[in-house]
Design a protein around this nucleic acid. Sequence first.
DNA 1: AGACCAATAT
DNA 2: CATATTGGTC
Length: 310
Amino acid sequence: MGEEAAGDDEFDRLSASDGREIVEDHGRVMYWEVGLPSGDDLTPLSQMLVPPHLASAFSVKPEPPRTDMDVQRASQYTISNLRRTAPSPASTAALRNFSPFSPDESLGFEANDLVENGDSCGHISRSGQISPSAALEEAESSAPVAEDSGDEPSSSRNPKRARLVWTPQLHKRFIDVVAHLGIKNAVPKTIMQLMNVDGLTRENVASHLQKYRLYLRRMNGIQDDSPSLPDHLLTAMQPAKKSLHEQHVPYTPLQYPMPAMIPVPTFGMAPPHGHGVRIGMVPTMEHQGDGRYAFEQHYNGALGERMKDW
DNA sequence: AGACCAATAT
DNA sequence: CATATTGGTC
């Protein structure tokens, strides 16, 4: 795993409510934009890059139109990779924050996007399609949010939360956090806090943690590395690496400042082979005494990929 | 009261 | 099987 490779210094808070302005803390990012064409000079998202006739002439499949959400997602992915790649000076120890986009404002847009795209599994699955393995190892993306479309159970104080689906991204976050805290500190509440995922509850984490522990237990009992065990699974589930300094990790280090990940509630179960885009609606929110925000809901990351056997 | 965690329920 | 809920314990 990337271990603590991801360091980065102070964090830059990219606040792009609508995709353009990049506000950040120390003017660190702005200069990247110097000299770049302005938005008006760029090709509109709606415009096809390859003209239809050319596409057909070369048997090129037309690219699905991109939406702001797509762009943001791609941007996050890029940032996330940059962070991991860039060797961080000293401050390696503590994993740093990364906060692609401000969570706040990001509410409105995806709801529509999702709705309109209803079934076009095309773009939604993108994040998960980066390649199955990639999805498990890298990609961090936000899950689109879907408002309960025409759902009754008043969105407000609905006591019934939809079942959370631990997508590979969510699980990855979980693993990262657990790995970062020692086994000692890896308890539900702390994990939940560090994961910083909107709508994720302590109960959700506790349950997952229980399962994870069982997995670990079963895992080291059977050191057998016969033929099975698909690599990526191993990678994903590897026992938390104890860093040399995990002993005392109050809170700080690993932090996912923004609630980019969104739990994916669903009602029905995933069809045999994942693919349908399930839209879960989640009622409401509510909250734990300490610091978390309320929530949103969502649709399923549609990554057909589920965690297979871990 | 609140958090953990294992057991049990859905 | 994956998650949620429960209940005993600290």
